[in-house]
Design a protein around this nucleic acid. Sequence first.
DNA 1: CGCCAGGCCTGCACGC
DNA 2: TGCGTGCAGGCCTGGC
Length: 271
Amino acid sequence: MPELPEVETTRRGLEPVLVGQRIRAAIVRNRSLRRPVPRQLARCLNGSTVRSLARRGKYLLIDCGTGTLIVHLGMSGRLSVVNGATPATEHDHFDLVLESGTVVRLRDPRRFGLVLWQAGDPLAHELLAEIGPEPLSREFDGAWLHRVTRNRSTAIKHVLMDGHVVAGVGNIYANEALFRAGIHPRTAARRLGRSRCGLLAHAIRETLEDAIRAGGSTLRDYVAADGRVGLFQDQFMVYDRAGNACPRCATSIREIRQGQRSTFFCPKCQR
DNA sequence: CGCCAGGCCTGCACGC
DNA sequence: TGCGTGCAGGCCTGGC
Protein backbone atom coordinates (compact mmCIF):
# COMPACT_ATOMS: atom_id res chain seq x y z
CA MET A 1 0.00 0.00 0.00
CA PRO A 2 1.82 2.91 1.28
CA GLU A 3 4.53 4.81 -0.44
CA LEU A 4 6.07 8.00 0.84
CA PRO A 5 2.95 10.23 0.55
CA GLU A 6 0.77 7.75 2.45
CA VAL A 7 3.36 7.31 5.20
CA GLU A 8 3.81 11.08 5.43
CA THR A 9 0.04 11.59 5.64
CA THR A 10 -0.08 8.99 8.41
CA ARG A 11 2.77 10.74 10.20
CA ARG A 12 1.03 14.11 10.08
CA GLY A 13 -2.18 12.59 11.37
CA LEU A 14 -0.48 10.84 14.27
CA GLU A 15 1.83 13.65 15.30
CA PRO A 16 -0.71 15.68 17.31
CA VAL A 17 -2.10 12.50 18.86
CA LEU A 18 1.22 11.04 19.94
CA VAL A 19 3.77 13.71 20.68
CA GLY A 20 4.01 14.52 24.37
CA GLN A 21 1.89 11.52 25.35
CA ARG A 22 2.96 8.92 27.88
CA ILE A 23 2.76 5.32 26.74
CA ARG A 24 0.84 3.14 29.13
CA ALA A 25 1.24 -0.16 27.30
CA ALA A 26 2.25 -1.87 24.09
CA ILE A 27 0.09 -4.83 23.10
CA VAL A 28 1.43 -7.34 20.62
CA ARG A 29 -1.20 -9.80 19.38
CA ASN A 30 0.80 -11.28 16.56
CA ARG A 31 4.54 -10.96 16.39
CA SER A 32 5.00 -12.64 13.02
CA LEU A 33 5.39 -9.69 10.71
CA ARG A 34 8.11 -9.55 8.07
CA ARG A 35 10.48 -9.80 10.99
CA PRO A 36 9.41 -10.92 14.44
CA VAL A 37 8.21 -8.07 16.64
CA PRO A 38 10.76 -7.89 19.50
CA ARG A 39 9.64 -9.65 22.69
CA GLN A 40 10.85 -6.97 25.06
CA LEU A 41 8.91 -4.22 23.28
CA ALA A 42 6.41 -3.62 26.08
CA ARG A 43 9.23 -3.30 28.58
CA CYS A 44 11.09 -0.83 26.34
CA LEU A 45 8.05 1.36 25.82
CA ASN A 46 6.34 1.27 29.16
CA GLY A 47 6.16 4.64 30.84
CA SER A 48 8.11 6.47 28.17
CA THR A 49 6.88 9.64 26.52
CA VAL A 50 6.73 10.22 22.78
CA ARG A 51 9.08 13.05 21.86
CA SER A 52 8.64 13.25 18.13
CA LEU A 53 7.36 11.49 15.07
CA ALA A 54 9.61 11.41 12.03
CA ARG A 55 9.72 9.63 8.70
CA ARG A 56 12.58 8.17 6.70
CA GLY A 57 11.50 6.86 3.30
CA LYS A 58 8.56 4.60 4.10
CA TYR A 59 9.58 4.09 7.72
CA LEU A 60 7.88 5.88 10.60
CA LEU A 61 10.15 6.74 13.51
CA ILE A 62 8.49 7.22 16.87
CA ASP A 63 11.03 8.70 19.25
CA CYS A 64 10.21 7.48 22.74
CA GLY A 65 13.18 8.98 24.51
CA THR A 66 14.62 5.65 25.60
CA GLY A 67 14.74 4.53 21.99
CA THR A 68 12.79 4.59 18.76
CA LEU A 69 9.86 2.53 17.64
CA ILE A 70 10.31 1.92 13.92
CA VAL A 71 7.15 1.06 11.98
CA HIS A 72 6.86 0.05 8.33
CA LEU A 73 3.44 -0.53 6.77
CA GLY A 74 4.51 -3.01 4.08
CA MET A 75 1.82 -3.50 1.42
CA SER A 76 -1.34 -3.55 3.48
CA GLY A 77 -0.49 -1.89 6.79
CA ARG A 78 -2.49 0.90 8.34
CA LEU A 79 -2.17 2.84 11.56
CA SER A 80 -5.30 4.31 13.05
CA VAL A 81 -6.31 6.16 16.16
CA VAL A 82 -9.09 4.41 18.05
CA ASN A 83 -10.81 4.66 21.37
CA GLY A 84 -9.43 2.31 24.00
CA ALA A 85 -12.74 0.48 24.12
CA THR A 86 -12.69 -0.43 20.43
CA PRO A 87 -12.32 -4.21 20.20
CA ALA A 88 -9.42 -5.49 18.10
CA THR A 89 -10.39 -7.43 15.01
CA GLU A 90 -8.52 -9.91 12.86
CA HIS A 91 -5.18 -8.53 11.59
CA ASP A 92 -4.94 -5.92 14.35
CA HIS A 93 -1.46 -7.01 15.37
CA PHE A 94 -0.19 -4.19 17.51
CA ASP A 95 -1.52 -1.45 19.83
CA LEU A 96 0.19 1.50 21.41
CA VAL A 97 -1.94 2.44 24.41
CA LEU A 98 -1.55 6.02 25.59
CA GLU A 99 -2.02 7.34 29.11
CA SER A 100 -5.20 9.10 27.92
CA GLY A 101 -6.69 5.78 26.88
CA THR A 102 -6.36 6.53 23.18
CA VAL A 103 -4.93 3.68 21.14
CA VAL A 104 -2.78 3.80 18.01
CA ARG A 105 -3.50 0.50 16.27
CA LEU A 106 -1.62 -1.32 13.54
CA ARG A 107 -3.64 -3.45 11.18
CA ASP A 108 -1.81 -5.39 8.47
CA PRO A 109 -3.55 -8.34 6.78
CA ARG A 110 -0.58 -9.36 4.64
CA ARG A 111 1.96 -8.90 7.42
CA PHE A 112 4.72 -7.48 5.23
CA GLY A 113 5.02 -4.63 7.69
CA LEU A 114 7.48 -4.19 10.53
CA VAL A 115 7.53 -3.09 14.15
CA LEU A 116 11.06 -2.72 15.41
CA TRP A 117 12.85 -1.22 18.36
CA GLN A 118 16.13 0.66 18.08
CA ALA A 119 17.82 1.79 21.26
CA GLY A 120 20.32 4.16 19.65
CA ASP A 121 20.20 6.30 16.53
CA PRO A 122 17.31 4.95 14.43
CA LEU A 123 19.02 5.98 11.20
CA ALA A 124 21.84 3.62 12.10
CA HIS A 125 19.49 0.64 11.96
CA GLU A 126 20.64 -1.77 9.25
CA LEU A 127 17.37 -1.40 7.33
CA LEU A 128 17.63 2.40 7.28
CA ALA A 129 21.35 3.03 7.09
CA GLU A 130 21.67 2.46 3.34
CA ILE A 131 18.54 4.30 2.21
CA GLY A 132 19.09 7.04 -0.38
CA PRO A 133 18.30 10.74 0.02
CA GLU A 134 14.82 11.96 0.87
CA PRO A 135 13.21 13.06 -2.42
CA LEU A 136 11.81 16.21 -0.80
CA SER A 137 15.17 17.26 0.61
CA ARG A 138 17.74 19.50 -1.08
CA GLU A 139 20.12 16.58 -1.18
CA PHE A 140 18.03 15.00 -3.88
CA ASP A 141 18.31 16.71 -7.24
CA GLY A 142 19.20 16.12 -10.87
CA ALA A 143 22.90 16.11 -10.13
CA TRP A 144 22.50 13.29 -7.61
CA LEU A 145 20.31 11.28 -9.96
CA HIS A 146 22.81 11.81 -12.74
CA ARG A 147 25.72 10.72 -10.57
CA VAL A 148 24.16 7.51 -9.27
CA THR A 149 22.85 6.39 -12.65
CA ARG A 150 26.10 6.70 -14.63
CA ASN A 151 26.96 3.03 -14.78
CA ARG A 152 23.49 1.57 -14.43
CA SER A 153 22.10 -0.10 -17.51
CA THR A 154 18.92 -1.05 -15.64
CA ALA A 155 15.61 0.48 -16.71
CA ILE A 156 15.09 3.87 -15.07
CA LYS A 157 11.78 2.82 -13.55
CA HIS A 158 13.51 0.01 -11.72
CA VAL A 159 16.18 2.39 -10.47
CA LEU A 160 13.60 4.83 -9.09
CA MET A 161 12.09 2.03 -7.02
CA ASP A 162 15.50 1.19 -5.56
CA GLY A 163 15.49 2.72 -2.08
CA HIS A 164 19.26 3.15 -2.18
CA VAL A 165 18.88 5.66 -5.03
CA VAL A 166 15.98 7.65 -3.61
CA ALA A 167 13.84 6.98 -0.54
CA GLY A 168 10.14 6.21 -0.56
CA VAL A 169 9.31 5.95 -4.26
CA GLY A 170 7.25 2.84 -5.03
CA ASN A 171 5.37 1.57 -8.04
CA ILE A 172 2.63 4.18 -8.27
CA TYR A 173 4.82 7.24 -7.94
CA ALA A 174 7.61 5.87 -10.14
CA ASN A 175 5.03 5.49 -12.92
CA GLU A 176 3.52 8.92 -12.35
CA ALA A 177 6.83 10.74 -12.09
CA LEU A 178 8.15 9.20 -15.32
CA PHE A 179 5.02 10.35 -17.10
CA ARG A 180 5.46 13.90 -15.81
CA ALA A 181 9.06 13.91 -16.94
CA GLY A 182 8.19 12.45 -20.36
CA ILE A 183 10.62 9.57 -19.93
CA HIS A 184 9.98 6.02 -21.14
CA PRO A 185 10.14 3.62 -18.17
CA ARG A 186 12.42 1.20 -20.07
CA THR A 187 15.11 3.79 -20.77
CA ALA A 188 18.49 2.57 -19.55
CA ALA A 189 19.29 4.80 -16.57
CA ARG A 190 22.81 5.60 -17.80
CA ARG A 191 21.43 6.99 -21.04
CA LEU A 192 19.69 9.90 -19.28
CA GLY A 193 21.65 13.11 -19.61
CA ARG A 194 21.96 15.89 -17.05
CA SER A 195 18.93 17.80 -18.23
CA ARG A 196 16.61 14.79 -18.23
CA CYS A 197 17.88 13.79 -14.77
CA GLY A 198 17.02 17.30 -13.64
CA LEU A 199 13.56 17.02 -15.16
CA LEU A 200 13.01 13.67 -13.52
CA ALA A 201 14.15 14.76 -10.06
CA HIS A 202 11.80 17.71 -10.36
CA ALA A 203 8.93 15.47 -11.51
CA ILE A 204 9.46 13.10 -8.58
CA ARG A 205 9.35 15.96 -6.11
CA GLU A 206 6.24 17.51 -7.65
CA THR A 207 4.41 14.21 -7.85
CA LEU A 208 5.09 13.40 -4.20
CA GLU A 209 4.18 16.90 -3.04
CA ASP A 210 0.90 16.81 -4.96
CA ALA A 211 0.13 13.39 -3.54
CA ILE A 212 0.81 14.51 0.02
CA ARG A 213 -1.42 17.51 -0.55
CA ALA A 214 -4.17 15.12 -1.64
CA GLY A 215 -3.68 12.97 1.46
CA GLY A 216 -2.05 10.11 -0.48
CA SER A 217 -3.68 7.51 -2.71
CA THR A 218 -6.32 5.04 -1.58
CA LEU A 219 -6.54 1.92 -3.76
CA ARG A 220 -8.22 -0.50 -1.38
CA ASP A 221 -7.06 -0.47 2.21
CA TYR A 222 -5.13 2.72 2.80
CA VAL A 223 -6.64 5.36 5.08
CA ALA A 224 -4.89 8.04 7.12
CA ALA A 225 -4.62 7.80 10.89
CA ASP A 226 -7.90 9.69 11.27
CA GLY A 227 -9.68 7.31 8.91
CA ARG A 228 -9.81 9.65 5.94
CA VAL A 229 -9.15 8.21 2.51
CA GLY A 230 -6.55 9.67 0.15
CA LEU A 231 -7.64 11.39 -3.04
CA PHE A 232 -4.56 11.32 -5.23
CA GLN A 233 -5.82 8.26 -7.16
CA ASP A 234 -8.21 10.69 -8.88
CA GLN A 235 -5.18 12.51 -10.25
CA PHE A 236 -3.37 9.46 -11.64
CA MET A 237 -2.18 10.21 -15.15
CA VAL A 238 -1.10 6.66 -16.03
CA TYR A 239 -1.14 4.32 -13.02
CA ASP A 240 -3.83 1.64 -13.44
CA ARG A 241 -5.14 3.45 -16.52
CA ALA A 242 -4.21 0.95 -19.25
CA GLY A 243 -6.38 1.47 -22.33
CA ASN A 244 -7.56 4.89 -21.18
CA ALA A 245 -6.66 8.10 -22.95
CA CYS A 246 -3.43 9.88 -22.01
CA PRO A 247 -4.51 13.12 -20.30
CA ARG A 248 -2.01 15.05 -22.41
CA CYS A 249 -2.33 13.60 -25.92
CA ALA A 250 -5.24 11.12 -25.76
CA THR A 251 -3.08 8.19 -26.92
CA SER A 252 -4.05 4.92 -25.26
CA ILE A 253 -2.07 4.25 -22.06
CA ARG A 254 -0.03 1.04 -22.28
CA GLU A 255 0.76 -1.53 -19.60
CA ILE A 256 3.92 -3.64 -19.56
CA ARG A 257 5.66 -5.81 -16.93
CA GLN A 258 9.02 -4.85 -15.50
CA GLY A 259 10.47 -7.21 -12.92
CA GLN A 260 7.07 -8.65 -11.95
CA ARG A 261 5.62 -5.18 -11.43
CA SER A 262 3.10 -3.40 -13.64
CA THR A 263 4.30 -0.35 -15.51
CA PHE A 264 1.96 2.14 -17.16
CA PHE A 265 3.01 4.80 -19.65
CA CYS A 266 2.01 6.85 -22.65
CA PRO A 267 3.91 5.58 -25.71
CA LYS A 268 3.72 9.00 -27.34
CA CYS A 269 4.53 11.35 -24.44
CA GLN A 270 7.25 9.14 -22.93
CA ARG A 271 10.35 8.43 -25.03
C1' DC B 1 -9.35 -22.13 -9.38
C1' DG B 2 -5.46 -18.76 -10.76
C1' DC B 3 -3.88 -14.31 -10.80
C1' DC B 4 -3.08 -9.89 -9.07
C1' DA B 5 -1.96 -6.17 -5.47
C1' DG B 6 0.92 -0.14 -2.65
C1' DG B 7 7.28 -3.58 -0.31
C1' DC B 8 11.49 -5.39 0.05
C1' DC B 9 14.84 -8.92 1.22
C1' DT B 10 17.43 -13.05 -0.49
C1' DG B 11 19.63 -16.02 -3.66
C1' DC B 12 20.90 -17.51 -8.13
C1' DA B 13 22.95 -17.44 -12.90
C1' DC B 14 25.20 -14.65 -15.91
C1' DG B 15 28.51 -11.41 -18.17
C1' DC B 16 32.15 -8.22 -17.91
C1' DT C 1 38.14 -13.26 -8.38
C1' DG C 2 34.65 -10.06 -7.79
C1' DC C 3 31.46 -6.94 -8.97
C1' DG C 4 26.74 -5.33 -10.92
C1' DT C 5 22.68 -6.92 -13.07
C1' DG C 6 18.31 -9.17 -14.00
C1' DC C 7 15.52 -12.26 -12.63
C1' DA C 8 12.63 -15.42 -9.53
C1' DG C 9 11.01 -16.55 -5.14
C1' DG C 10 9.43 -15.80 -0.59
C1' DC C 11 6.82 -13.61 3.00
C1' DC C 12 0.96 -13.21 3.56
C1' DT C 13 -4.24 -12.24 2.87
C1' DG C 14 -7.99 -10.77 0.11
C1' DG C 15 -10.48 -9.57 -4.03
C1' DC C 16 -11.78 -10.43 -8.68
